[in-house]
């Protein structure tokens, strides 16, 4: 008993350290793969880490009109994202915080980070900050219901909305391939793209303010504040990758109460899964173009309808079983 609790605590701490360390690497990997796919050499995957360390050494400049919000919001956002990331399993299940790993709570923590970001956009009183905040909150209006309906689909399969239980239920494989999971997976991918400000919703590499959403809210951030925001964005991408992996690619994850050997195997497989997802994202982003801002609600509305379709189909199959 004692040993199991100790093991779960160790996995939890290792998991948090892993997520924090891997986050910039995954962003770097996506950038590198994207550059390769486009025929460029691309920066080294460790470049985001180097950028972060460089930004930390720089003196931050705050806007004259900025308030305490600009100084607190980055840490609050990163704190909320870290807590959410701590709840999403990576290499092992049954971590110390697993009883708390509720998908609705994870959505709420991401919403907290999003609101902190939007308020940061408002704080300097510049036109682009407010515009970006309005767009970000509008996208969330469509993304949140899609996420919730997907949670309902998983809850039908696993009984509840606890991510650990869902992962365990899907890993056992007794549930089989399901159309509803296919639809819910597509909906979640669309939500992931919107939440992480990726193409086609937003362009992470843009330099044109009028088309910005995520970057527009960070125009006034610099130095360590910018470093914290960059880290938050990277961690959020990693969190979503881990979430998709935990639900749709659950095989190989070390079950609750297993030893270091299973952890190592789970870790290796997790790295493979992250690499696959990064490759998929890079391929997708290279293949399509960014949408107009006012088409994004259509895109996310489509995701919501897919999720509803998944729910309808899962009701059919459970009604038959």
């Amino acid at each position: 008993m004692m040993l199991v609790a100790f093991g779960s605590l160790i996995t939890q701490l290792l998991h948090v350290a892993l997520m924090l360390a891997a986050a910039p690497v995954i962003v770097g990997a996506v950038r590198w793969l994207k550059a390769r796919l486009m025929g460029r050499r691309g920066p080294h995957p460790l470049q985001p880490w180097r950028d972060l360390l460089k930004l930390l050494r720089k003196r931050p400049v705050l806007a004259e009109t900025a308030s305490v919000v600009s100084r607190v919001a980055p840490y609050l956002a990163l704190g909320a994202t870290t807590l959410a990331a701590a709840l999403v399993p990576s290499f092992a299940q049954g971590m110390w915080l697993a009883p708390l790993a509720d998908l609705v709570l994870i959505g709420g923590l991401l919403a907290l980070a999003r609101v902190a970001l939007a308020l940061n956009g408002h704080d300097a009183g510049t036109p682009f900050g407010g515009m970006g905040a309005a767009r970000e909150m509008t996208f969330a209006v469509f993304a949140e219901p899609a996420l919730l309906v997907c949670v309902m689909v998983f809850a039908v399969l696993a009984g509840g909305s606890n991510l650990d239980a869902i992962g365990a239920a899907l890993r056992d494989g007794a549930l089989g391939l399901r159309v509803s999971l296919l639809f819910a997976g597509l909906a979640l991918v669309a939500v992931m793209l919107a939440e992480n400000a990726r193409i086609p919703v937003d362009n992470p590499a843009t330099h044109l303010e009028l088309t910005m959403v995520h970057e527009a809210m960070l125009l006034e951030a610099s130095g360590r504040h910018l470093a914290v925001w960059e880290m938050q964005a990277a961690l959020k991408l990693t969190l979503w990758f881990a979430l998709l992996a935990a639900i749709f690619l659950p095989f190989g994850t070390a079950p609750a109460g297993s030893g270091p050997l299973a952890w190592a195997a789970g870790l290796g497989l997790w790295g493979l899964k992250m690499g696959l997802l990064a490759l998929g994202l890079a391929f997708f982003e290279s293949a399509i173009a960014k949408m107009r801002v006012f088409r994004v609600p259509d895109f996310l509305g489509g995701a919501l309808l897919l999720a509803l379709l998944a729910a309808a189909l899962i009701f059919v199959s459970t009604g038959l079983a």
Partner: peptide, 8 residues
Amino acid sequence: PVRGPAWD
């Protein structure tokens, strides 16, 4: 941090 004008 130091204070500076915002990009407006």
